[in-house]
Design a protein around this nucleic acid. Structure first.
Lengths: 205, 205
DNA sequence: GACTGTGAAAAGTTTCACAGCT
DNA sequence: AGCTGTGAAACTTTTCACAGTC
Protein backbone atom coordinates (compact mmCIF):
# COMPACT_ATOMS: atom_id res chain seq x y z
CA UNK A 1 0.00 0.00 0.00
CA UNK A 2 1.34 3.37 -0.94
CA UNK A 3 0.73 6.00 1.72
CA UNK A 4 1.10 8.94 -0.67
CA UNK A 5 -2.24 8.14 -2.28
CA UNK A 6 -4.24 8.41 0.93
CA UNK A 7 -3.98 12.20 1.24
CA UNK A 8 -5.16 12.43 -2.36
CA UNK A 9 -8.24 10.43 -1.50
CA UNK A 10 -8.83 12.65 1.50
CA UNK A 11 -8.53 15.75 -0.64
CA UNK A 12 -11.06 14.61 -3.21
CA UNK A 13 -13.44 13.52 -0.47
CA UNK A 14 -13.22 16.97 1.09
CA UNK A 15 -14.13 18.48 -2.25
CA UNK A 16 -17.03 16.06 -2.65
CA UNK A 17 -18.24 16.93 0.83
CA UNK A 18 -18.31 20.60 -0.16
CA UNK A 19 -20.19 19.66 -3.30
CA UNK A 20 -22.77 18.01 -1.06
CA UNK A 21 -22.11 14.61 -2.62
CA UNK A 22 -22.97 11.94 -0.06
CA UNK A 23 -21.90 8.72 -1.69
CA UNK A 24 -19.05 7.97 -4.07
CA UNK A 25 -17.76 4.81 -5.69
CA UNK A 26 -14.28 3.74 -6.64
CA UNK A 27 -14.85 4.47 -10.33
CA UNK A 28 -15.70 8.09 -9.61
CA UNK A 29 -12.77 8.56 -7.25
CA UNK A 30 -10.53 6.92 -9.79
CA UNK A 31 -11.61 9.22 -12.55
CA UNK A 32 -10.91 12.32 -10.50
CA UNK A 33 -7.46 11.11 -9.52
CA UNK A 34 -6.44 9.09 -12.56
CA UNK A 35 -6.07 5.99 -10.45
CA UNK A 36 -7.69 2.63 -11.23
CA UNK A 37 -10.76 1.76 -9.16
CA UNK A 38 -9.19 -1.57 -8.20
CA UNK A 39 -6.20 0.29 -6.80
CA UNK A 40 -8.40 2.49 -4.69
CA UNK A 41 -10.43 -0.40 -3.33
CA UNK A 42 -7.24 -2.30 -2.52
CA UNK A 43 -5.72 0.68 -0.73
CA UNK A 44 -8.80 1.25 1.37
CA UNK A 45 -9.31 -2.42 2.17
CA UNK A 46 -5.89 -2.39 3.79
CA UNK A 47 -7.36 -0.37 6.65
CA UNK A 48 -10.87 -1.74 6.86
CA UNK A 49 -14.15 -2.23 5.09
CA UNK A 50 -15.49 1.24 4.63
CA UNK A 51 -17.78 0.71 1.64
CA UNK A 52 -21.16 -0.78 1.09
CA UNK A 53 -21.39 -3.35 -1.68
CA UNK A 54 -23.73 -2.29 -4.44
CA UNK A 55 -23.62 1.35 -3.26
CA UNK A 56 -20.14 2.73 -2.75
CA UNK A 57 -18.58 4.75 0.04
CA UNK A 58 -20.19 7.33 2.30
CA UNK A 59 -18.15 10.46 1.62
CA UNK A 60 -18.33 11.69 5.18
CA UNK A 61 -17.54 8.31 6.72
CA UNK A 62 -14.61 7.59 4.42
CA UNK A 63 -13.18 11.06 4.89
CA UNK A 64 -13.38 10.69 8.65
CA UNK A 65 -11.67 7.32 8.50
CA UNK A 66 -8.89 8.59 6.27
CA UNK A 67 -8.34 11.67 8.39
CA UNK A 68 -7.99 9.42 11.37
CA UNK A 69 -5.60 7.06 9.58
CA UNK A 70 -3.50 9.99 8.37
CA UNK A 71 -3.48 11.74 11.72
CA UNK A 72 -5.39 14.67 10.25
CA UNK A 73 -8.09 14.56 12.90
CA UNK A 74 -6.00 17.04 14.88
CA UNK A 75 -3.85 20.02 14.09
CA UNK A 76 -0.05 20.03 13.85
CA UNK A 77 2.32 22.79 14.84
CA UNK A 78 5.05 23.45 12.33
CA UNK A 79 8.30 25.42 12.48
CA UNK A 80 9.87 27.04 9.44
CA UNK A 81 13.65 27.36 9.37
CA UNK A 82 15.06 29.84 6.89
CA UNK A 83 13.27 33.08 6.17
CA UNK A 84 14.80 33.99 2.82
CA UNK A 85 12.82 34.27 -0.38
CA UNK A 86 11.66 30.68 -0.25
CA UNK A 87 10.97 30.64 3.48
CA UNK A 88 8.81 33.73 3.13
CA UNK A 89 6.86 32.11 0.32
CA UNK A 90 6.28 29.13 2.59
CA UNK A 91 5.22 31.36 5.48
CA UNK A 92 2.72 33.19 3.32
CA UNK A 93 1.33 30.11 1.58
CA UNK A 94 -2.33 30.02 2.51
CA UNK A 95 -2.75 26.27 2.01
CA UNK A 96 -1.25 25.02 5.25
CA UNK A 97 -3.63 26.39 7.86
CA UNK A 98 -6.86 25.04 6.34
CA UNK A 99 -5.24 21.60 6.22
CA UNK A 100 -4.49 21.75 9.93
CA UNK A 101 -0.82 22.71 9.75
CA UNK A 102 -0.17 25.77 11.89
CA UNK A 103 3.10 27.52 11.39
CA UNK A 104 3.86 28.65 14.91
CA UNK A 105 7.51 29.69 14.67
CA UNK A 106 10.09 30.93 12.18
CA UNK A 107 13.85 30.70 12.62
CA UNK A 108 16.88 32.02 10.83
CA UNK A 109 20.61 32.04 11.45
CA UNK A 110 21.09 35.52 10.09
CA UNK A 111 21.26 38.16 12.82
CA UNK A 112 19.87 40.64 10.30
CA UNK A 113 16.61 38.73 10.05
CA UNK A 114 16.18 37.73 13.68
CA UNK A 115 13.64 39.95 15.37
CA UNK A 116 11.99 40.91 12.10
CA UNK A 117 8.26 40.52 11.81
CA UNK A 118 7.16 38.20 9.00
CA UNK A 119 3.43 37.88 8.74
CA UNK A 120 2.30 37.42 12.33
CA UNK A 121 5.53 35.78 13.46
CA UNK A 122 8.76 37.21 14.79
CA UNK A 123 11.87 35.57 13.36
CA UNK A 124 13.71 33.78 16.17
CA UNK A 125 17.38 32.88 16.49
CA UNK A 126 18.35 29.20 16.27
CA UNK A 127 19.29 29.29 19.94
CA UNK A 128 15.62 29.35 20.84
CA UNK A 129 14.84 26.25 18.79
CA UNK A 130 14.93 23.70 21.56
CA UNK A 131 12.74 25.73 23.86
CA UNK A 132 10.18 26.63 21.20
CA UNK A 133 9.94 23.08 19.88
CA UNK A 134 9.14 21.81 23.36
CA UNK A 135 6.81 24.65 24.16
CA UNK A 136 4.66 24.16 21.07
CA UNK A 137 5.14 20.38 20.76
CA UNK A 138 6.48 20.82 17.28
CA UNK A 139 7.20 17.56 15.48
CA UNK A 140 7.23 18.90 11.92
CA UNK A 141 9.60 21.43 10.38
CA UNK A 142 9.92 22.98 6.96
CA UNK A 143 13.52 23.78 6.05
CA UNK A 144 14.25 26.44 3.47
CA UNK A 145 17.90 27.30 4.02
CA UNK A 146 20.78 27.24 1.53
CA UNK A 147 22.09 23.77 0.64
CA UNK A 148 25.32 24.44 2.50
CA UNK A 149 23.45 24.82 5.79
CA UNK A 150 20.77 22.22 5.29
CA UNK A 151 22.49 19.26 6.92
CA UNK A 152 23.46 21.09 10.09
CA UNK A 153 20.06 22.71 10.44
CA UNK A 154 18.38 19.34 10.07
CA UNK A 155 20.73 17.74 12.59
CA UNK A 156 19.79 20.51 14.97
CA UNK A 157 16.07 19.95 14.41
CA UNK A 158 16.37 16.20 14.90
CA UNK A 159 18.34 16.76 18.09
CA UNK A 160 15.49 18.92 19.36
CA UNK A 161 13.00 16.13 18.77
CA UNK A 162 11.52 17.08 15.41
CA UNK A 163 10.36 13.89 13.71
CA UNK A 164 9.32 14.97 10.20
CA UNK A 165 10.99 17.43 7.87
CA UNK A 166 10.17 18.94 4.51
CA UNK A 167 13.37 20.11 2.85
CA UNK A 168 13.35 22.61 0.01
CA UNK A 169 17.08 22.68 -0.68
CA UNK A 170 18.43 20.77 -3.67
CA UNK A 171 20.33 18.32 -1.53
CA UNK A 172 19.70 14.96 0.14
CA UNK A 173 20.25 15.31 3.86
CA UNK A 174 21.10 12.27 5.96
CA UNK A 175 18.82 11.53 8.88
CA UNK A 176 18.76 8.65 11.30
CA UNK A 177 16.17 5.94 10.94
CA UNK A 178 12.80 6.90 12.29
CA UNK A 179 12.93 10.48 11.02
CA UNK A 180 10.73 11.21 8.03
CA UNK A 181 12.08 13.52 5.40
CA UNK A 182 10.53 14.73 2.13
CA UNK A 183 12.62 16.63 -0.34
CA UNK A 184 10.78 19.07 -2.56
CA UNK A 185 12.86 20.11 -5.53
CA UNK A 186 11.20 21.53 -8.62
CA UNK A 187 14.40 21.20 -10.62
CA UNK A 188 14.47 17.43 -10.09
CA UNK A 189 10.84 17.31 -11.20
CA UNK A 190 11.72 19.17 -14.40
CA UNK A 191 14.73 16.97 -15.00
CA UNK A 192 12.65 13.81 -14.81
CA UNK A 193 10.33 15.26 -17.41
CA UNK A 194 13.06 16.16 -19.86
CA UNK A 195 13.98 12.49 -19.89
CA UNK A 196 10.71 11.81 -21.65
CA UNK A 197 10.89 14.90 -23.82
CA UNK A 198 14.44 14.27 -24.91
CA UNK A 199 14.29 11.46 -27.42
CA UNK A 200 10.86 10.45 -28.64
CA UNK A 201 10.01 8.94 -25.30
CA UNK A 202 6.65 10.69 -25.13
CA UNK A 203 4.64 7.59 -26.02
CA UNK A 204 5.67 6.04 -22.74
CA UNK A 205 3.43 7.22 -19.98
CA UNK B 1 14.28 1.54 -13.67
CA UNK B 2 12.96 4.60 -11.94
CA UNK B 3 13.67 7.77 -13.88
CA UNK B 4 13.36 10.04 -10.85
CA UNK B 5 16.66 8.76 -9.48
CA UNK B 6 18.69 9.75 -12.52
CA UNK B 7 18.56 13.50 -11.88
CA UNK B 8 19.71 12.82 -8.36
CA UNK B 9 22.74 10.98 -9.67
CA UNK B 10 23.42 13.86 -12.04
CA UNK B 11 23.20 16.34 -9.20
CA UNK B 12 25.66 14.52 -6.99
CA UNK B 13 28.02 14.06 -9.89
CA UNK B 14 27.94 17.81 -10.56
CA UNK B 15 28.87 18.40 -6.96
CA UNK B 16 31.68 15.87 -7.16
CA UNK B 17 32.93 17.53 -10.32
CA UNK B 18 33.11 20.84 -8.46
CA UNK B 19 34.92 19.12 -5.64
CA UNK B 20 37.48 17.96 -8.20
CA UNK B 21 36.70 14.32 -7.53
CA UNK B 22 37.50 12.33 -10.66
CA UNK B 23 36.32 8.83 -9.86
CA UNK B 24 33.43 7.63 -7.75
CA UNK B 25 32.03 4.20 -6.94
CA UNK B 26 28.51 3.04 -6.30
CA UNK B 27 29.06 2.85 -2.54
CA UNK B 28 30.04 6.50 -2.36
CA UNK B 29 27.14 7.62 -4.54
CA UNK B 30 24.84 5.48 -2.48
CA UNK B 31 25.95 7.00 0.77
CA UNK B 32 25.36 10.54 -0.47
CA UNK B 33 21.89 9.71 -1.71
CA UNK B 34 20.79 7.05 0.74
CA UNK B 35 20.34 4.58 -2.08
CA UNK B 36 21.84 1.08 -2.13
CA UNK B 37 24.91 0.62 -4.34
CA UNK B 38 23.24 -2.31 -6.11
CA UNK B 39 20.33 -0.08 -7.00
CA UNK B 40 22.62 2.50 -8.52
CA UNK B 41 24.57 -0.03 -10.54
CA UNK B 42 21.35 -1.58 -11.79
CA UNK B 43 19.93 1.80 -12.80
CA UNK B 44 23.04 2.76 -14.69
CA UNK B 45 23.46 -0.62 -16.37
CA UNK B 46 20.06 -0.08 -17.94
CA UNK B 47 21.61 2.53 -20.22
CA UNK B 48 25.07 1.16 -20.75
CA UNK B 49 28.33 0.14 -19.14
CA UNK B 50 29.75 3.34 -17.84
CA UNK B 51 31.98 2.02 -15.07
CA UNK B 52 35.35 0.36 -14.86
CA UNK B 53 35.48 -2.82 -12.81
CA UNK B 54 37.85 -2.54 -9.90
CA UNK B 55 37.82 1.29 -10.11
CA UNK B 56 34.39 2.84 -10.29
CA UNK B 57 32.91 5.54 -12.52
CA UNK B 58 34.61 8.52 -14.07
CA UNK B 59 32.68 11.45 -12.65
CA UNK B 60 32.93 13.51 -15.82
CA UNK B 61 32.05 10.63 -18.14
CA UNK B 62 29.08 9.46 -16.09
CA UNK B 63 27.75 12.98 -15.70
CA UNK B 64 27.97 13.54 -19.44
CA UNK B 65 26.17 10.29 -20.13
CA UNK B 66 23.41 11.08 -17.64
CA UNK B 67 22.96 14.59 -18.95
CA UNK B 68 22.58 13.15 -22.39
CA UNK B 69 20.11 10.50 -21.23
CA UNK B 70 18.08 13.11 -19.35
CA UNK B 71 18.13 15.62 -22.17
CA UNK B 72 20.11 18.03 -20.03
CA UNK B 73 22.82 18.52 -22.62
CA UNK B 74 20.82 21.45 -23.93
CA UNK B 75 18.75 24.22 -22.43
CA UNK B 76 14.95 24.29 -22.18
CA UNK B 77 12.65 27.27 -22.46
CA UNK B 78 9.92 27.37 -19.85
CA UNK B 79 6.74 29.41 -19.51
CA UNK B 80 5.20 30.28 -16.17
CA UNK B 81 1.44 30.69 -16.02
CA UNK B 82 0.07 32.51 -13.00
CA UNK B 83 1.95 35.43 -11.50
CA UNK B 84 0.43 35.54 -8.04
CA UNK B 85 2.42 34.98 -4.87
CA UNK B 86 3.46 31.50 -5.88
CA UNK B 87 4.18 32.34 -9.51
CA UNK B 88 6.41 35.19 -8.41
CA UNK B 89 8.29 32.89 -6.08
CA UNK B 90 8.82 30.52 -9.01
CA UNK B 91 9.95 33.36 -11.27
CA UNK B 92 12.49 34.54 -8.74
CA UNK B 93 13.76 31.09 -7.80
CA UNK B 94 17.43 31.12 -8.75
CA UNK B 95 17.75 27.37 -9.18
CA UNK B 96 16.24 26.98 -12.63
CA UNK B 97 18.66 28.89 -14.82
CA UNK B 98 21.85 27.10 -13.68
CA UNK B 99 20.12 23.79 -14.41
CA UNK B 100 19.40 24.88 -17.97
CA UNK B 101 15.76 25.86 -17.54
CA UNK B 102 15.22 29.37 -18.87
CA UNK B 103 11.98 31.04 -17.94
CA UNK B 104 11.27 33.03 -21.08
CA UNK B 105 7.65 34.07 -20.59
CA UNK B 106 5.11 34.75 -17.87
CA UNK B 107 1.35 34.74 -18.34
CA UNK B 108 -1.66 35.67 -16.28
CA UNK B 109 -5.38 35.94 -16.85
CA UNK B 110 -5.79 38.98 -14.67
CA UNK B 111 -5.85 42.21 -16.67
CA UNK B 112 -4.41 43.96 -13.64
CA UNK B 113 -1.20 41.95 -13.86
CA UNK B 114 -0.78 41.87 -17.63
CA UNK B 115 1.82 44.36 -18.74
CA UNK B 116 3.47 44.43 -15.32
CA UNK B 117 7.18 43.89 -15.12
CA UNK B 118 8.22 40.90 -12.99
CA UNK B 119 11.94 40.42 -12.85
CA UNK B 120 13.07 40.83 -16.42
CA UNK B 121 9.80 39.62 -17.92
CA UNK B 122 6.62 41.42 -18.86
CA UNK B 123 3.46 39.58 -17.87
CA UNK B 124 1.59 38.58 -21.01
CA UNK B 125 -2.12 37.90 -21.54
CA UNK B 126 -3.18 34.32 -22.23
CA UNK B 127 -4.11 35.31 -25.77
CA UNK B 128 -0.44 35.48 -26.64
CA UNK B 129 0.24 31.98 -25.41
CA UNK B 130 0.09 30.18 -28.73
CA UNK B 131 2.36 32.65 -30.45
CA UNK B 132 4.93 32.79 -27.67
CA UNK B 133 5.06 29.02 -27.25
CA UNK B 134 5.85 28.61 -30.95
CA UNK B 135 8.26 31.50 -31.02
CA UNK B 136 10.39 30.20 -28.17
CA UNK B 137 9.79 26.48 -28.79
CA UNK B 138 8.44 26.08 -25.29
CA UNK B 139 7.62 22.51 -24.35
CA UNK B 140 7.61 22.92 -20.58
CA UNK B 141 5.30 25.06 -18.45
CA UNK B 142 5.00 25.74 -14.75
CA UNK B 143 1.44 26.40 -13.67
CA UNK B 144 0.76 28.38 -10.51
CA UNK B 145 -2.86 29.45 -10.83
CA UNK B 146 -5.75 28.87 -8.42
CA UNK B 147 -7.16 25.32 -8.42
CA UNK B 148 -10.36 26.51 -10.04
CA UNK B 149 -8.47 27.64 -13.14
CA UNK B 150 -5.86 24.91 -13.30
CA UNK B 151 -7.65 22.50 -15.60
CA UNK B 152 -8.55 25.06 -18.22
CA UNK B 153 -5.11 26.63 -18.17
CA UNK B 154 -3.53 23.23 -18.64
CA UNK B 155 -5.92 22.35 -21.47
CA UNK B 156 -4.88 25.60 -23.10
CA UNK B 157 -1.18 24.80 -22.71
CA UNK B 158 -1.58 21.31 -24.10
CA UNK B 159 -3.52 22.69 -27.06
CA UNK B 160 -0.60 25.01 -27.75
CA UNK B 161 1.80 22.08 -27.88
CA UNK B 162 3.29 22.13 -24.38
CA UNK B 163 4.36 18.60 -23.52
CA UNK B 164 5.40 18.75 -19.87
CA UNK B 165 3.78 20.60 -16.99
CA UNK B 166 4.63 21.24 -13.37
CA UNK B 167 1.46 22.04 -11.47
CA UNK B 168 1.53 23.79 -8.09
CA UNK B 169 -2.20 23.79 -7.41
CA UNK B 170 -3.62 21.25 -4.97
CA UNK B 171 -5.58 19.45 -7.64
CA UNK B 172 -5.06 16.58 -10.08
CA UNK B 173 -5.56 17.85 -13.61
CA UNK B 174 -6.47 15.43 -16.37
CA UNK B 175 -4.21 15.37 -19.38
CA UNK B 176 -4.22 13.18 -22.44
CA UNK B 177 -1.70 10.38 -22.76
CA UNK B 178 1.72 11.55 -23.86
CA UNK B 179 1.66 14.71 -21.74
CA UNK B 180 3.88 14.62 -18.67
CA UNK B 181 2.57 16.25 -15.55
CA UNK B 182 4.13 16.59 -12.10
CA UNK B 183 2.09 17.88 -9.22
CA UNK B 184 3.98 19.66 -6.48
CA UNK B 185 1.92 20.00 -3.34
CA UNK B 186 3.63 20.57 -0.01
CA UNK B 187 0.42 19.85 1.87
CA UNK B 188 0.23 16.34 0.43
CA UNK B 189 3.85 15.85 1.45
CA UNK B 190 3.04 16.88 5.01
CA UNK B 191 -0.04 14.70 5.09
CA UNK B 192 1.96 11.62 4.10
CA UNK B 193 4.33 12.32 6.96
CA UNK B 194 1.62 12.67 9.58
CA UNK B 195 0.58 9.13 8.70
CA UNK B 196 3.84 7.95 10.21
CA UNK B 197 3.74 10.41 13.08
CA UNK B 198 0.17 9.64 14.00
CA UNK B 199 0.20 6.29 15.75
CA UNK B 200 3.61 4.91 16.65
CA UNK B 201 4.43 4.25 13.03
CA UNK B 202 7.84 5.86 13.27
CA UNK B 203 9.74 2.57 13.33
CA UNK B 204 8.68 1.95 9.77
CA UNK B 205 10.99 3.68 7.40
C1' DG C 1 42.01 -6.71 -4.59
C1' DA C 2 38.35 -3.91 -5.78
C1' DC C 3 34.96 -2.86 -8.16
C1' DT C 4 31.19 -3.27 -11.94
C1' DG C 5 27.55 -5.59 -14.42
C1' DT C 6 24.01 -8.83 -14.17
C1' DG C 7 21.25 -13.04 -13.80
C1' DA C 8 18.26 -14.91 -10.27
C1' DA C 9 15.56 -14.41 -6.09
C1' DA C 10 12.85 -11.67 -3.21
C1' DA C 11 9.85 -8.09 -2.18
C1' DG C 12 6.54 -4.84 -3.34
C1' DT C 13 2.79 -3.01 -6.18
C1' DT C 14 -0.87 -3.17 -9.47
C1' DT C 15 -4.37 -5.39 -12.06
C1' DC C 16 -7.67 -9.01 -12.81
C1' DA C 17 -11.77 -11.25 -12.07
C1' DC C 18 -15.31 -12.73 -9.39
C1' DA C 19 -17.71 -14.29 -5.04
C1' DG C 20 -20.65 -12.15 -2.08
C1' DC C 21 -23.25 -8.48 0.13
C1' DT C 22 -26.89 -4.70 -0.18
C1' DA D 1 -28.13 -4.91 -10.61
C1' DG D 2 -24.31 -2.67 -8.80
C1' DC D 3 -20.97 -2.26 -6.21
C1' DT D 4 -17.14 -3.67 -2.66
C1' DG D 5 -13.54 -6.62 -0.90
C1' DT D 6 -10.13 -9.82 -1.99
C1' DG D 7 -7.44 -13.91 -3.38
C1' DA D 8 -4.57 -14.96 -7.30
C1' DA D 9 -1.89 -13.51 -11.25
C1' DA D 10 0.91 -10.28 -13.46
C1' DC D 11 4.06 -6.96 -13.38
C1' DT D 12 7.62 -3.84 -11.44
C1' DT D 13 11.27 -2.74 -8.45
C1' DT D 14 14.79 -3.92 -5.28
C1' DT D 15 18.19 -6.81 -3.31
C1' DC D 16 21.38 -10.57 -3.44
C1' DA D 17 25.44 -12.70 -4.69
C1' DC D 18 29.03 -13.63 -7.65
C1' DA D 19 31.41 -14.16 -12.28
C1' DG D 20 34.17 -11.30 -14.80
C1' DT D 21 37.19 -7.42 -15.70
C1' DC D 22 40.51 -3.89 -14.64
Amino acid sequence: MVVARLPQYARVLSQLLEERVEVVNSDQLGERLQITPAQIRKDLSYFGRFGKQGRGYSVRRLLDELNQILGLDRSWNVAVVGVGRLGRAVLSYPGFAPAGFKIVAAFDTSAALVGQQVGNLTVQPMEELDQTVSQHSISIAIVAVPSSQTQQVIDRLVACGVKAIVNYAPTTPLVRKGIRIENIDPVLALQSMTYYLAQDRLWSN
